[in-house]
Every structure is written in C-alpha cells, then in structure tokens.
Design a protein around this nucleic acid. Structure first.
Lengths: 189, 189
DNA sequence: GTCTATAATTCGATAGAC
DNA sequence: GTCTATCGAATTATAGAC
C-alpha cells in the first residue's frame, strides 16, 4: 500500500492499542477515539489505516490462538499437557486478542465463530494426533474445550473467586485432571 | 406507587420484552427503543416505569437463578444430579435472565458479580450440604462451576458444535460424569 | 502523514401535550 | 397513562486544510 516508513510505526501502534482496548473493554465499549488516544494519534488516523472499527477488530483477532502443541506426551499425561499448553500463556497476560474474542463472543456471532474455528482446527487435530484410534475424539474434544473455556472465562475474564486467586499449579493440575478424564472415560454408544 | 390497573399490564409487558432483548442482544446492543417496540409502547414509557436502562437491566436479572436443589442424592449420583439440575431448565429455553447475565458478564462487572453470587450462595451451599465433611468443598465447587459455566456457554450462548446439537442425555451424562470427578478426585494439599 | 472540523447517526433521557 | 417532539451526548466516519 502507499504508506511510507513513518506510517508503519503508527499503524503498528494503533493495532497494538486496539488489541489492548478490545481485550479490556470489549468491542462495543472500546471506542475508536480511545484506541487513537492510546496510540497517540487522532481517530481519523485509525479510520484512514483500517477503514472501519469492524475491520480493525477483525485484524485484532488475526494472530489468533497459538498453535496447540501437545508434543509426544504419554497417554496418562495428556490432560495435564493440554491444560498447561492452553492456560499457561495466560499467566503472563499474553495474547490480548484472545481475551477480546472471548469478551465479544457472547454478543457477536463473528467472534463466536473464531472460537469454533479454534476448536475445529486446533483442539480436535491436536487431540486426534494424540489419540488417533479414538472413535469419539470430536465429542471428547468438544467436552475438553468446554472445560477449558469455563476455566478460562472464570479465572481470566470474569475473575471469579476462588479460582481467580488460586495458585496456578493447583489450578492447572485440577483442570488437567479433568481433561484427562474427558479423554479417557468410557463413552456410551 | 401511583400506577393504576391499566399500567400494570404495560409494566409487565416492558419487563418481559426487556428480558428477551437483553438475553438475545446483550446489554449494549439492546436499546430502549427496541424493548419499547416489542412491548408495544414508546421509549418514554420504558423510562417512565423503570427510570433508566440500567435499572431495568437490574430488574431483568432479579428472578435470577433457580434454587439449586440436589435433593438427597446418593454420593455416586451427585454429579449427574447437579448437571441435570443446572442444565435441564435450559433445554426448554427458560430463564432468559440468566442468558442475559452471561452475555453481559464479560464486559459488565456488575453482571459478573451476579455470577459470583450464584456460585457463593447456591453452588457452594448445595454441594456443602451434600458433602458436609469435605474440607475442600469451596475449591471443588468453583471447579464444578467452571465446568458448568463452560458447558452452558458452549452449548447455549456461543452454540459451538458439536456440543450445541448433541443429544441432551449424552450431554448431561458427560457433564455429570465430570462434575462427579471434580467432587470425588483426591486433592493435593 | 497527521490534524481539525464536522457530517450523519443513534442512543438515553426529558418536557409537556392530550 | 401514553404519546410526540426534542434535547444533549457520544459515536463512527468523512472532507479537506496543513
């Protein structure tokens, strides 16, 4: 596009500010003006570079979910491995885009679809690779994800106690244990 | 209040419309005008009877969560009993107020606090009554609730597949099984 | 490349007629 | 008791100066 050197930094600053605002305030309450202010520019610049609030939001979510890698975990450690891989990035407050998705999803169909995609393209394949012979892997993955979703929402988004203040190791161990159960319990056919 | 017979029906219609709108659209996207239109009146009436959008929303949530009654379930059936008691009302689409709370909670602190209250005043006491000697009942209740929250959000709010279309009996059985595990697994001290 | 000024909406809430 | 008309604030987005 016809933008020079100078603008690249501004563009990046806007995107960074948008990620932060959307993650903290949610889509509706985050305003173009507040994003612009955080980035040290005016609202006009935000529109100039990103067209509209909606387009900016879409780009905000793009880097998306980190690739879910379970490595070559032994069967008995799969749950714990999954829980750590999914939750640990959050302890350092990384990936504001994902918080933004989860804050927007209950009222914005497009955001909910991004979560659906994460489930289909990351969670299911990762678990299928680990348990290639399980005929119910999709149901298991959905249930595993539902526990991950609830734990994530409770601790990081809604900040419900005592989960929000619980020691991370204890938290991860509890969730890992449950995931393991989802993955290994007998399914009714 | 100085309101006569006639207004009572209007009042009720507004509240009913508000519950529906807040549940479907969320707090921010539901407008006074849309609620008024659904109720067959004008926006002025909504304000006249309920003062402000915020006050109306608060009343919307009031009937709140149904009392969580686990009856006298044997220890081995506690998880299943809990899952059914928490989820079954949803299959018939009841209680739009609760959908409204969960849609608003990620971006509205007050709504999140209502969920916290549900956890503290319904989930914890119900489980404590069922397992009076468990020293970790609050942690267990929080973990049970996190699974319930995730399952509820995935199936009814975000409508993630395949959970959203899963047969209810299978769904409830899976969640009940997990809840049971949360309640009975050994805790690290 | 960035800003000021402002257009065009939309929303919550009010005032006052009937 | 209900409505019309409108205010005032806030928002997204545009036009155009510098």
């Amino acid at each position: 596009m016809g933008f020079g050197e100078r603008s690249a930094a501004t563009r990046a600053a806007i995107l960074r500010a948008a990620r932060e605002r959307f993650a903290v305030d949610g889509y509706d309450r985050a305003t173009i003006r507040s994003i612009a202010a955080d980035a040290g520019v005016t609202a006009a610049m935000v529109i100039r570079y990103y067209g509209s609030k909606g387009e900016l939001f879409a780009l905000t979510l793009e880097p998306g979910f980190a690739h879910l890698d379970l490595g070559s975990a032994p069967r008995e450690e799969l749950g714990m491995r999954f829980a750590r891989a999914a939750l640990e990035p959050w302890e350092s407050g990384a990936n504001p885009g994902i918080a933004a998705v989860h804050r927007a999803a209950p009222t914005h169909e497009e955001a909910a679809q991004i979560i659906q995609k994460y489930l289909d393209r990351q969670v299911v394949p990762a678990l299928r690779a680990a348990l290639p012979d399980d005929p119910d892997i999709e149901e298991r993955a959905a249930l595993v994800h539902s526990q991950g979703l609830g734990a994530f929402m409770a601790r990081y988004i809604l900040r419900l106690e005592p989960l929000a203040s619980m020691d991370y190791e204890e938290f991860a161990a509890a969730i890992g244990d449950i995931v393991q159960h989802h993955l290994t319990r007998p399914m009714r056919r």
